[in-house]
Design a protein around this nucleic acid. Structure first.
Length: 448
RNA sequence: CGGGGCGUAGCGCAGCCUGGUAGCGCAUCUGUUUUGGGAACAGAGGGUCGCAAGUUCGAAUCUUGCCGCCCCGACCA
């Protein structure tokens, strides 16, 4: 992409409304624009990141054995009356009436709808387990949206739902998502810690929030330091086999959010040296809720014994739009974003220091085409702006690699390559740059 | 939902108390000089002062109502 053709409205000054780094940087880097309280338009640069995160989530859901579908944003009130939640949900639900005065709502979640869809198509235990997911915009009319996309009212979410014949097999479905989430977040460069969460009236041990540690996190969290270094399940993981050992490895250590934190338990189970008390951002939540909806909504299957039983369900959410903010919280400095390769809007920022200079233009064009041919996402700055402005701009939008080409270096056949993550710079021979950058991109994208 | 605050050019703000020509910085456009880390000079364009009603000879400024947004708290992915 050539910068002159792109839509990238950068802000030099920090918008007054933005309180935290990710919100500030997303506005400054022209990733989002606020269109209302907690409602954002995704500008081209932000949209790229959002789509890359979405795609990682999708790939890992697929790997875990879930099947993608898409449910609507607008739902009918009657569906929610079946579960009793239409009255129970409260003001966070955005209620709408259509021209026929029918009561509708903008979905805050999809348990009712997926249950309705499931019961329409499944009759026998032989069809189980069923694992379905979709990635869709949701709306919750939060009392107080803030922190940009981290706590918006409209947000993009992946939610998956599992249907099993009994609790034991539901536990296996749960474990699939547990392992899939470890991989998902790891691929974005995040260390996400599964923490025991409040299971509400259902009880049991089958609810975990996945938390990434960050100073600006919304909740206080407490965990064992050793959780930070546990191995992530590899790409060769067989999700149809027993995943309990993986889950046990993570759940053996203490980790809890402030909702259920118990100081005595923490101190008893974790040596002083290993105690981590920090703040965290919730980026995923997995939950087993048994037959709550299947009973209320009559989602029954015939078991081996010929009797109808209510299916055991679980739901598994990932805050896709929120993750954009969470990744920035984890990777930034005062100058801008420092994207991990896997979610970077562009892998390489190509800076032409002297557009109009025939040699410089030719060198840049060759490298631009070479990188594109190698499948690298390049943003080519061929504008007339001054060098300082170009450098600051690339730092702000945070391309992991910057290739800087100007007459001075070119005179010696040299090109500068800067790594955004640590600022390290290298002089390379002009001919070597495409191979160097594309292999660095490949390395950055590879994941065990 | 309780408490606090703000709406004036694309962004950041002053002006309001004490009514009388709508301003500043950045950004944008033109020209000149610059050119390897957010340039300098000169000039230009850009506003129903959130909306509506009221008071007044006259309202960005005073009054009332409405709308929008932000912050703190309780709640949430």
């Amino acid at each position: 992409m050539k910068l002159s053709q792109y839509y990238l409205p950068l802000l030099k000054e920090t918008p007054a409304d933005a309180q935290i780094a990710s919100h500030r940087l997303m506005l400054r880097a022209g990733m989002i624009r606020q269109e209302g309280a907690g409602i954002y338009a995704w500008l081209p640069l932000g949209h790229r990141v959002l789509k890359k995160i979405e795609q990682i989530v999708r790939e890992e859901e697929d790997r875990a054995g879930a099947v993608e579908m898409l449910m609507p944003t607008i739902q009918q009130a009657d569906l929610w009356r079946e579960s009793g939640r239409y009255d129970a949900y409260g003001k966070e639900m955005l209620r709408i009436t259509d021209r026929g005065d029918r009561e509708m709502l903008f979905g805050p979640t999809n348990e009712e709808m997926i249950t309705e869809i499931f019961r329409a198509g499944v009759r026998s235990y032989k069809d189980l387990p069923t694992l379905l997911y979709h990635i869709q915009w949701k709306f919750r009319d939060e009392i107080r949206p803030r922190f940009g996309v981290m706590r918006g009212r409209e947000f993009l979410m992946k939610d998956a739902y599992s249907f099993d014949i009994d609790e034991a097999s539901a536990r296996h479905s749960y474990n699939r998502f547990f392992a899939a989430y470890l991989r998902t977040f790891s691929r974005m460069g995040l260390t996400a810690i599964p923490m025991r969460a409040d299971t509400g009236p259902i009880g049991g041990d089958l609810s975990h929030e996945f938390i990434v540690l960050a100073d600006t996190g919304e909740s206080a969290v407490f965990c064992d330091k050793r959780l930070l270094d546990l191995p992530i399940p590899g790409a060769d993981t067989d999700f149809s086999k027993d995943l309990q050992p993986i889950v046990d490895q993570f759940t053996n250590y203490y980790a809890a959010t402030d909702e259920i934190y118990d100081e005595k338990e923490f101190e008893q189970k974790v040596d002083e040296d290993n105690r981590v008390s920090a703040r965290g951002i919730e980026i995923g939540h997995i939950f087993y809720f048994g037959t709550k909806y299947s009973k209320a909504m009559n989602a029954l299957v015939t078991g081996p014994d010929g009797k109808n039983t209510a299916v055991h369900m679980g739901s598994y959410g990932v805050g896709v739009s929120r993750l954009v903010g969470a990744v920035i919280e984890a990777f930034h400095d005062d100058d801008g974003c420092k994207w991990p390769m896997s979610v970077a809007p562009f892998h390489v920022g190509l800076v032409n220091l002297k557009p109009g200079d025939a040699d410089t233009d030719a060198a840049c064009n060759n490298i631009y085409k070479g990188l594109q041919a190698a499948g690298v996402d390049v943003l080519y700055d061929e504008t007339k702006a001054r060098p300082g402005e170009k450098f600051a701009r690339m730092d702000l939008i945070g391309a992991p690699l910057q290739v800087v080409i100007g007459p001075r270096g070119l005179g010696e056949g040299k090109v500068e390559v800067k790594r955004r993550s640590d600022g390290a710079r290298e002089e390379l021979a002009l001919e070597a740059v495409v191979e160097y950058a594309s292999s660095a991109v490949r390395d950055g994208l590879s994941h065990p």
